[in-house]
Write a protein that binds this DNA or RNA. Structure first.
Lengths: 354, 354
DNA sequence: TTGTACGCGTTATCAA
DNA sequence: TTGATAACGCGTACAA
């Protein structure tokens, strides 16, 4: 009302005939307010559609937050670097804006380490947790402890349905699979005769398997729904990721000896390994190659068209949003969307970013 | 750590042995500071890597800004609604954050109206201008006036090379064309014999023609570079957009009588008109249909797979970034990136957002 | 249970 | 050319 600007706590206090202290108490539920006064103030807040001034709030509030980040360990250039970049970016941005936020990083490469690190976050004075649930069983155990200790947490990249998380931020792996299937179908439909497709699950043993499986399920269901089973023959290949190109080469070599597929779908983020094998063996005609994630090595293979298409689900943005959501929830008690699904991008040589 | 976190103007003042008023003057170039003092303060700012506290700044600043938005007039559901949504979103967001910003909207449907509205923005007290340059000649005239009157402006959606704008926010139409070409090539390459492709320029006469042309150029150059000219035959079709489906139907009907193309590329945002024609005439086999922009009617045709792929360049985000960039430039004198290119998205039924 | 007063970092005004 | 000081809206400790 003043100068047509926003309404302040002071305006509410005036209208309610009390002091700003009292208004503040009802806004923050700090109790100790006479019930009738409380009701009146709440009504006025609704009536005037009061919205707190974020800037003043941050400026006045001296609270320091520490967030716990619990993610799989990774080497430079691997998938998890991307969400981490988003996390760092958000931290930096919010700190520059006068917030006082610190991140404490925890990584794991085994279910035991995962659980250990998780429990440490509870004993340490951590205000909010951002984690990627590794294996189902361990994650449920951990999440239960978070809940009991009243630690708010956000799930990132893959979900555990039904957990009392503030939010899940990630992707729909079934949709990913469907999209890849659509691409492969459209790109091979004019090939005469039966089309052979390899689905390669190249991943670290017993890690992240759920998402890869879900992708494969989405992939298969596309062909099932469209009654295309007779036109295609599929071969699912589980390949352990030992991290060395040589092992991949060996396996691909053996497979190629049995015949040359029309298309290859790699469900994990390590298509570049398969691409490198193809560059070595040069099968002719070159199979269509599709995979996931905008990591550096994959992009290089897209540039030279060994990889034809890359799917990605805004990995970096996931990290950014996780931090942002946690801060909003912690500092303003803002209610966060229960599910924040990323968009699904299709990249090829011509529309690669950068 | 608690108080030692960020450095404030006060810290600089102490170190420089002057008052915060003086520091403020050098930061904001309000002149009237003794040169040696000025140098000393600047050095200390660099040394301590001072970053202003955004919250305090917004809180204390009483300045009110009005932005002028100069865009083509549009009906609901048309392309320009998307950038406008982004603009509104940004306005809302920044106003909620305590900024005091007002938008004044101007639209045009002819070069004369465009110029008129532009000149009015100069006489009115407008602090910054966001505009889409309609025709080249008129735009250059207008931009010259902006420059002479010291009005900062941002170009949105399509560029005029070399203008002294704060920033250009938009897309690379040549890249769009290349991407569509890649898709059509890959999706038709296994068809035997010569493949026929229509390129339809369906647009309001003499409006936005430059971007559509650039897309077509990108499109053609893909096939030229790849030495594919002999495998494909192209037909460029200029179709006036009268806004009625009937006229489109007539023209498509005539064209189909001469033969059934393998693929159709519609360079504007009105693929849905072509899609509706195809639904009516049911050419068999159905040509591959690719177009631009996530407007409602297009998305409907993607859902029923009349349109196979849709390209879009983050239309909504363009509007958002334009407002954000202008505010940053105006309030903090921040230097804005000269070119902010949007990502190029590929959408099909399976990865359509929402 | 309620009210008051100070501080957060910056802008802007006025007096020196 | 400079310095002191009152806002800005909110959080909070302390007084009543």
């Amino acid at each position: 009302m003043k100068n047509g600007r926003h309404i302040r706590i002071k305006d509410i206090a005036e209208k309610a005939g009390c002091s700003i202290g009292t208004v503040d108490r009802v806004i923050h539920n700090r109790g100790k307010v006479a019930e009738p006064v409380r009701q009146r103030i709440l009504r006025i807040i609704k009536e005037l559609d009061y919205k707190p001034n974020v800037n003043a709030r941050v400026l006045a509030s001296k609270q320091a937050l520490t967030l716990g980040i619990l993610l799989p360990s990774y080497k430079k250039g691997e998938y998890w670097e991307l969400p981490c970049l988003g996390i760092s970016e958000a931290m930096e941005r919010y700190n520059e804006q006068g917030y006082n936020i610190e991140a404490r990083w925890f990584t794991y490469n085994s279910p035991e380490k995962f659980h250990q690190a998780g429990m440490k976050m509870i004993t340490d004075e951590i205000d909010g947790i951002i984690l990627n649930p590794a294996t189902y069983k361990e994650s449920v155990r951990l999440v239960r402890s978070f809940f009991q200790n009243n630690k708010p947490f956000i799930l990132i990249d893959s979900d555990i349905h039904g957990t009392p998380s503030l939010s899940f931020i990630g992707k729909d792996p079934v949709q990913s699979g469907l999209t890849v299937a659509k691409l492969i179908h459209q790109l091979t439909r004019h090939i005469t005769g039966n089309k052979s497709v390899w689905i390669i699950n190249l991943s670290i043993p017993s890690n992240q398997n759920y998402a890869l499986l879900a992708r494969e399920i989405g992939f298969m269901s596309y062909f099932a729904d469209k009654q295309l089973r007779d036109d295609y023959s599929f071969q699912s290949i589980d390949m352990d990721d030992t991290g060395t190109q040589k092992v991949v080469d060996e396996q691909i070599g053996k497979l190629l000896a049995t015949g040359n597929p029309h298309a290859i779908y790699v469900t994990g983020s390590r298509v570049h390994n398969i691409a490198d094998s193809l560059k070595k063996f040069k099968p002719d005609p070159k199979p269509l190659l599709i995979g996931h994630d905008l990591i550096h090595k994959n992009m290089e293979r897209v540039k030279d068209e060994t990889i034809d298409f890359l799917i990605e689900e805004e990995a970096r943005r996931q990290g950014y949003l996780a931090v942002e959501s946690m801060i909003r929830s912690l500092t303003y008690k803002e209610v966060i969307q229960k599910k924040q699904m990323m968009n699904l991008m299709i990249y090829t040589r011509e529309n690669l970013p950068l």
